[in-house]
């Protein structure tokens, strides 16, 4: 095993081009487990800790450019307003120690369906900025996950940042696990209201081979909200709409039975979380609307 320590992003890209099998390591929270347990012996380990750019974020007009290695703790503390869904998801990641080291780049690189950030990124809308010596490109989050623990990266590419749309409405995130802290998702659900475009986006974790959106559920809800004039009248969402949305979210799952939970539970729990997060976000939207109207 060789240990590569690029001092800059350019050096990292060059190293990755030269050694496409090199395994990047930042927080180490996935890679080191595999090494410690003898599941993986990469030829090259490439440390990204010295590349300061990966630890920076910039809040832009419409989106946040989040460095791949910004620790979850920073996201929770600093980006709660701009990226509420991701901040909530970050808070569910493992333990304080892990949140101090791990970042979204690791979740994306590993592309495990159980990664906590994925449903929040899917719901918010995001693009993954990847780069190689050949150049830089942005991969829409919807196209990023290509299979179980597979992503759209080419062998010579590294994840530099993720561009997440700034919240224009309430966002929520829930994760079902069999322990009240430090638990891998049995399944997870993210939901974002986008009042500006009058759309709703979702993300489901650990309930399909890849993180997925519940597109049929989104389409149904978008139509139902539009038809009922809900965005304007701010009415309570009817139980039948919530129920249908919840059922469609369950139907979007393609889960398996494993040691963490049954497929049947995952489908069920995603439905419950979909209904609850819809209620929480919608109530929050109505509250904000009333407050705005009250002020006007």
């Amino acid at each position: 095993m060789d240990f590569l320590r690029p001092a800059s992003w350019e050096e990292a890209l060059a190293a990755k081009a030269e050694h496409p099998t090199a395994v990047p390591i930042a927080g180490g929270t996935d890679v080191m487990v595999e090494i410690n347990f003898d599941h993986r012996r990469p030829e090259y380990l490439m440390d990204l800790n010295r590349i300061g750019d990966l630890y920076a974020w910039e809040v832009g007009e419409d989106s946040v450019r989040l460095g791949a290695s910004v620790p979850y703790t920073r996201i929770m503390e600093n980006l709660r307003a701009e990226l509420p869904g991701l901040a909530l998801a970050s808070h569910t990641v493992a333990s304080p120690q892990i949140r101090n080291r791990g970042g979204v780049g690791g979740n994306l690189g590993t592309a495990s369906p159980a990664g906590d950030a994925h449903p929040a990124l899917l719901a918010a809308g995001a693009e993954v900025e990847v780069e190689s010596v050949r150049g830089s490109r942005r991969i829409p989050i919807d196209d990023f996950y290509t299979g179980v623990k597979r992503n759209a990266l080419a062998p010579d590419e590294l994840i530099r940042a993720v561009h997440v749309k700034k919240a224009d409405g309430p966002q929520q995130y829930s994760k079902a696990g069999t322990r009240n802290a430090m638990v891998i998702a049995v399944c997870a659900f993210g939901l974002a209201l986008h009042p500006r475009t009058r759309t709703v986006r979702t993300g489901i974790g650990s309930a399909a081979p890849t993180p997925v959106r519940a597109t049929a559920a989104e389409e149904f809800l978008n139509a139902a909200l539009e038809e009922g004039g809900f965005w304007d009248n701010g009415k309570v969402i009817t139980p039948s709409v919530a129920k249908r949305f919840s059922d469609l979210c369950s139907a979007a799952c393609n889960p398996i039975d494993d040691v963490r939970g049954t497929a049947s539970y995952r489908r069920h729990a995603v439905g419950v979380m979909a209904r609850r997060t819809l209620t929480w976000t919608w109530e929050s939207y109505r509250g904000a609307r009333r407050a705005t109207e009250g002020a006007a």
Partner: peptide
Amino acid sequence: LPGGLSNTTHGEG
């Protein structure tokens, strides 16, 4: 609450 930091309920159920 049940679920703890995973934010699964705010009292529902």
